[in-house]
Simulated assay, not measured.
Amino acid sequence: MSMLLNPYAFATGGGGGGTLPPGATSFLDFVNGFYYAGGSWQSVSAMLGGGFDPSAISGSGMYIDFSNANRPTVIGVLLTQLLAGLAAGVTLLFEVSTASSLGGFLIFISDTGNLDTAGDGIIVSVDGAISDFIALGLYIGTPVSGSGVHKIAITLNRDIGGGDYEYAWSNDGDAAETQSVSYAAPIMSDVTIGHDGAGNGNTLFQTYIRSITIYPAMDPADLPALTA
């Protein structure tokens, strides 16, 4: 199959094209091989490094499981954009697919990229929780469960005034659940996807990440439409 006809040809380099979702600032479409950040289409190898294994990408998405070697770390312009987004408030939309129950870290944002050594961090668990190292602990009443495709939208560090910052979660069209804290997110430097950077058993379980889309922070009322 020619490179022009093969949507996965850009999984390891080159660049790509596609359609950026309206309002998004970054987009990783692992199913179709389209990757966008910093105002232009990129190769996935310019966005993911560390223990990233390009062979984990297929027509089903990017596979992460405790038994495979794929342990991606966000790098380059995507890391810069994501950390700047966190400081300003950011919404992340994940589309995932699993043949089994969900478990593990969906994303881990920290000051070291390693759960064992981090002094500050924000943990998003795929089955329904957002927590940090201070006081945040948002646990979803109706979490993601069961096989199939799921959409999960999370908002981190949205400034709601009065010195308060809001976190929110919606999956599969459900009304968003929220929690606010009285402090801004600490300055972070590292982001891992699907694992904790330390090998402590927090890796995703038999999960394909189909896409990741990054937006400026959204109102919780807008999240159900994003995940429907």
Rank of each mutant, 00 (worst) to 15 (best):
Ile75Glu: 05
Thr227Gln: 03
Pro186Phe: 06
Ser110Pro: 04
Pro186Leu: 08
Asp53Tyr: 03
Thr25Gly: 02
Gly199Tyr: 10
Gln42Ala: 01
Gly199Ile: 10
Asp116Lys: 07
Val144Ile: 14
Thr12Cys: 04
Thr19Pro: 07
Ser147Ile: 09
Gly119Pro: 03
Gly49Arg: 07
Leu83His: 04
Ala228Ser: 15
Gly17Thr: 02
Ser147Pro: 12
Leu5His: 15
Ser189Met: 05
Gly76Phe: 07
Val44Pro: 04
Asp172Lys: 06
Met218Pro: 02
Asp196Ile: 12
Thr227Arg: 02
Pro21Asn: 13
Gly13Ala: 14
Tyr215Arg: 00
Asn70Gly: 11
Leu86Lys: 01
Ala168Lys: 01
Pro21Tyr: 11
Asp164Leu: 09
Leu115Gln: 13
Ala184Lys: 08
Asn32Thr: 11
Ala99Gly: 15
Leu86Val: 15
Ser125Ile: 13
Thr207Ser: 13
Pro224Arg: 01
Asn114Met: 07
Met47Asp: 00
Leu115Met: 14
Val124Phe: 14
Asp53Met: 06
Leu20Lys: 05
Phe94Val: 07
Gly148Met: 15
Ile160Met: 04
Ile140Gly: 06
Phe205Ala: 13
Ser45Cys: 05
Gly146Asp: 09
Asp164Ser: 13
Thr192Ala: 13
Ser40Phe: 00
Met188His: 09
Asp222Trp: 05
Ala176Lys: 00
Ala84Asp: 14
Lys151Gln: 15
Gly201Thr: 06
Asp132Tyr: 06
Asp120Ala: 11
Ile107Met: 15
Ser101Thr: 10
Pro7Ile: 07
Thr73Glu: 13
Phe30Asn: 05
Arg71Pro: 08
Ile212Ser: 03
Ala198Leu: 06
Thr155Asp: 02
Ile123Asn: 14
Ala228Ile: 06
Ser110Lys: 02
Phe108Lys: 01
Gly17Ala: 09
Met3Lys: 13
Ser131Asn: 09
Gly137Met: 05
Ala37Ile: 01
Asn202Ala: 10
Leu78Gly: 01
Asp172Tyr: 10
Thr155Tyr: 02
Leu48Asn: 02
Ile209Ala: 08
Gly137Ser: 10
Tyr165Gly: 00
Gly113Ser: 06
Tyr165Asn: 00
Met47Leu: 15
Ser125Met: 14
Phe52Gly: 08
Leu226Tyr: 04
Thr213Ala: 11
Thr98Cys: 06
Gly121Trp: 15
Thr117Phe: 14
Arg158Glu: 00
Leu48His: 02
Ala99Phe: 04
Val181Trp: 09
Trp41Ile: 01
Ser2Ala: 10
Leu5Lys: 14
Asn157Val: 00
Ile212Arg: 02
Ala225Ile: 11
Thr207Val: 13
Ser110Asn: 03
Lys151Tyr: 10
Asp132Pro: 10
Asp190Val: 11
Pro224Leu: 05
Asn68Glu: 07
Ser2Lys: 11
Ser110Ala: 08
Ala9Thr: 09
Ser180His: 01
Asp164Asn: 15
Tyr63Phe: 15
Ser40Ile: 00
Thr98Gly: 12
Tyr165Asp: 00
Ser97Cys: 02
Ile140Arg: 03
Gly137Cys: 03
Phe10Tyr: 10
Thr12Met: 05
Gly50Lys: 11
Ser145Ala: 14
Ile212Val: 11
Gly18Phe: 05
Gly199Asn: 08
Met188Arg: 04
Gly59His: 09
Ile154Cys: 14
Leu156Asn: 01
Ser2Arg: 12
Asn157Met: 01
Gly59Cys: 06
Asn68Leu: 07
Val181Cys: 13
Ser125Gly: 15
Gly104Ser: 05
Ile123His: 12
